[in-house]
Design a protein around this nucleic acid. Structure first.
Lengths: 180, 180
DNA sequence: AGTCTCATGTAACTCGTTACATGATTAA
DNA sequence: TTAATCATGTAACGAGTTACATGAGACT
């Protein structure tokens, strides 16, 4: 039950319409909670029905018409409640680690190329995060909000760093293995 | 589409019945691809219908009766195909990072306790992985299979190490922040 | 008038979760 | 013989994905 709270957070940062939200998810919140536009529209409908958000007036409602939403006090209260509530970490699911485990049984043929591709993707993601860091978090900035946002970004940077190192190591291991 | 391949891998390592598999997922493969017994039974049915596995004979089929499965050649071939195929990494979803982002907007009240709890959980998981490492991967072992399995385990160890460090840092940041 | 893009949706499906049901085996 | 446990399932629901549908505005 995290998507509604991701949307509430995004709308508190800035009221937006569905497609705006989708784009912001693609390049910011979506780095750790992705969502498609279909999910977002569905969830906006629910949040409005529950009284957590409302469509900003001034727009006539119709299909192809832009419709912006803002968070109501009940929505902010729900987000505060959710943020403070205890939540168990979800079990991991990582297809790449699963594939290596499968490769230990059926052999590593054909694996190397895709590992290299993943390594490249993680390097690009890391570069993107570092660019955001340089742009949005210069040394001086230290409001409470900026410090927390930077903390989240550093998690992304360190995770991508881990994956690039681990994949490099994995490729070295593969190279040393006898051909299967 | 990874659960069937996780099951094929587990069954190749050792033919098993549904509950056996569930237990093995709980303490081994499930570290990076968890599954409930309901999912596993459903998937075993599908895999059997597709001709990838078969129930080992000698058991009469009935509800409360143990039913073990083994992988057929078509199942191994499918697993080989899947292992070598290119696959895009799935977008991350991490509720804890999302909560920190929300806290940047609505405040950090009540967050600290749950961060401490998560830190403790990650420390325990790390200790468990290290114990497995000491037990199953002593320095001498270096068959191809053992090296790949160890590589996967090291990923788990390094990820848990990252989380314990990051959560420690996050708690330090929280302590320095003015109360909201 | 036609087509392209923006914007908001619907529908159908798969995967995962939660709650419950039922048969077989074992121990008190 | 009753209860606990092992083992295999069913049913209902929710979240996420994929494919498609429809309206509005802008350009040609």
């Amino acid at each position: 039950m995290s998507l509604p709270h991701a949307i509430l957070t995004a709308l508190l940062e800035r009221p937006s319409a569905g497609l705006d939200l989708t784009r912001r998810f693609d390049r910011s919140i979506g780095y750790f909670w992705s969502a498609s536009h279909q999910q977002i529209y569905r969830e906006l409908g629910k949040l409005e029905a529950e009284g957590y958000i409302r469509a900003i007036p001034e727009d006539r409602p119709s299909r192809g018409q832009k419709k912006s939403y803002e968070v109501l006090p009940a929505g902010r209260a729900e987000l505060e409640r959710w943020t403070a509530a205890a939540q168990d970490p979800k079990p991991h699911r990582d297809a790449l680690l699963l594939r290596l485990r499968a490769a230990a049984v059926v052999g590593t043929d054909g694996l190397e190329a895709d590992l290299r591709r993943h390594l490249d993707l993680h390097r690009r993601q890391l570069a993107e995060y570092e660019q955001i860091q340089d742009r949005d978090f210069p040394p001086g900035k230290d409001s409470a909000q900026a410090r927390l946002q930077h903390l989240v970004l550093r998690a992304g940077i360190e995770l991508e760093t881990f994956w690039t190192q681990w994949l490099t190591e994995a490729l070295e291991e593969l190279a040393e293995l006898p051909d299967s």
